[in-house]
Nucleic acid binder design. Structure first.
Lengths: 153, 153
DNA sequence: CTTAATTCAGACAAGTTTGTCTTAAATTAG
DNA sequence: CTAATTTAAGACAAACTTGTCTGAATTAAG
């Protein structure tokens, strides 16, 4: 798992907001949870983190909810990932060695740095807007096909 | 975390064996655990998995231990990864959507498939021997620099 | 045969992530 | 002001991963 589940959910919610074409108004978390097939309470907790980190703005009461704090083309996926999972992804060793670096590399360090920079580039270059546009085109989805993931027998 | 800790440890142990230049003889798990700075009991459990999966051979009693079941150039990292973490890595969606595929892609699917194939290619093309050789050259390491990883304050 | 060394098996504990629930606080509408 | 709606906060539980321990089984050596 490259991203935690919390991070997956946070990204899906952020993309849902960006794709909702209602950037001005607040969308309730329960509506989002329903649309995305996620636990309301769990999503609430995750979005609280994003609100605390300044990526979203929330308001309580009727017609309350959350919205993106900035235009969707000024937030990229890496912002969300770092807010939820921290900078782990940026410098983690593929063999889990702490202190792995150019100076003290593990035997896979060079190759892994290359792959990792591909990942960070993807998250850095993808804005919520650019990704949401693909969703709006209708050919991409944000919700699970199957409710319960198949477990091993 | 791309690989579980168990998988990290299993890979390190397998590479340790491949780099030990004692392919014929058995190496005790306690010796390996000591050398790699890992918990003996935990490593034992992981290596039992690799033994059950046919990647290692073990023998009990004095001078017992484990060794690679096949020559180090016929085992690649992917063999170890799949034995321990399962095929998760091969088809997992970056947004955690189950059923994500070319037919039902998430909005990052195309880019992620490309990155993922880079990862699988790395693990497929890296044999224990090829990686162990780099270790034997002395410029790469398999053990943690710092014992206790720093926790967030 | 006895003893020591070692893996095997599985119970158990600790830690982390994921998910649920309840109550409080804030906001809006009447 | 009151009631309804919604997020905020945090306790708690469930599930999974990681780590520890004990005893059994096997092997080698004397």
């Amino acid at each position: 798992m490259v991203l935690s589940k919390s991070c997956d959910y946070g990204l899906r919610a952020a993309l849902f907001l960006a794709a909702s074409e209602r950037e001005e108004s607040f969308v309730s978390i329960s509506e989002m949870a329903k649309a995305l097939g996620l636990s309301f309470h769990f999503l609430t907790k995750i979005l609280q983190t994003l609100t605390r980190k300044g990526l979203m703005v929330s308001t309580k009461g009727p017609h309350g909810g959350v919205r993106l704090a900035r235009p969707a083309d000024s937030i990229n996926l890496m912002d969300i990932v770092i807010a939820i999972d921290g900078p782990r992804l940026l410098n983690e060793c593929v063999l889990g060695l702490n202190g792995c670096s150019d100076q003290h590399p593990c035997p896979l360090h060079r190759q892994w740095v290359s792959i990792r920079s591909g990942i960070t580039e993807l998250f850095n270059q993808s804005t919520l807007k650019s990704v949401a546009q693909r969703i709006a085109e209708g050919s991409y989805r944000l919700i699970d096909l199957i409710e319960e993931p198949e477990k091993k027998v």
